[in-house]
Amino acid sequence: MLNVYSTLETWWLIPFCVILLTGILCPAMGTILITHKRLLQVNLISHCVLPGLVLAVALGVSPSIGGVFSGLFGSLAAEALTNKKNENYEAIMNTILASSLGLGVLLIPLLGIRIDLESVLFGDLLTANLGDLSRTIISFLVFISLILFGYEKLVHIGLDQEGASDSGIKVSYLNLLLGLTSALVIVSSMSAIGVILVIALLSAPALLGLQQAPSLRVAMVRSAIFGSLISVLGFLLAIAFNMSPGPLVAVLCILLIGLLPRKRNN
C-alpha cells in the first residue's frame, strides 16, 4: 500500500527529469546546428526517424535503434545533397522529408503493427518511463563527449569550413558525427516533445542564446538555460491545465521568438 502511495506521489519525477534534460540538450545542440547552417538537414533527420522506428518495431528490435539508423540515413542523404551543392537541394530535401514521413505512416498498416503515431510525432511526456530517461541520458553523454573532444574543431568548421579542411580537420568525419548526434538527440526527445515538434526546441532557445554571445560555448549555455526554463514551464502548465506537454512547449517557444531584438533599419 505504501509503495502505491509513494509511486503516486513521485509519478512526475521521471517525466520531469526527461523534459529538463531534453530542455537542456535540444537547445544546446540546436545552437551548433544553427551556427553551422544545418537546421534544414536536422529537420530531414527528424522526419526520417519514423520509417526506421516502424521497421524496428516490426523486427522486434528497440524502436530507438531503428529510429537512429534511419535518422542517420537521412543525415547522410542531407550531407550528400549539401556537398553536391545542387541548386535545388532545398526542394529535394523537403521532398525527401515529406516522403520519409509518408513512408513511415504507410509502413504501419503494411507491416500490420500497432504504433501510437501521435505520441511518436508529438510526444507523450506524462507516460515517460525509465527507458525514455536512460535514452535521454545516453544522448546527453554522447553530446557532452562531442563537445569535450571536438569543440575547437566545430568552431573552426562553423566559421570557415574550407579553412578548417585546409588546416587538417576531417570535416566530413565531424559532420557525420554531428549528424549521428543529432539523430540521437531527436530520437531521445521522442517521448518529451515528439520527433516533429522537437525542431521548435532546437531553434527558438538557440536563437535567443546566440544574441551577442561572445563564443559558441556561452551561446550553448544560454540556450540551454532558456530551453530548460521553457520546457519546465510547459510541463507545469500542461499538468495544471490537463494539456499535452509536447505541443504546449512548442507553442511556448513562440514567446522566445518574441523576445528577439528587432533589427533597426537605418
Binding site: 551556427t35 562553423g158 566559421l159 570557415d160 574550407e162 579553412g163 546566440l210 561572445p214 563564443s215 551561446a219
Partner: peptide, 10 residues
C-alpha cells in the same frame, strides 16, 4: 565571402 561572419566568436 568564405567566412560565416555571424558566428559567435570574438
Amino acid at each position: 565571402g568564405r567566412l560565416n561572419w555571424n558566428f559567435p566568436i570574438t
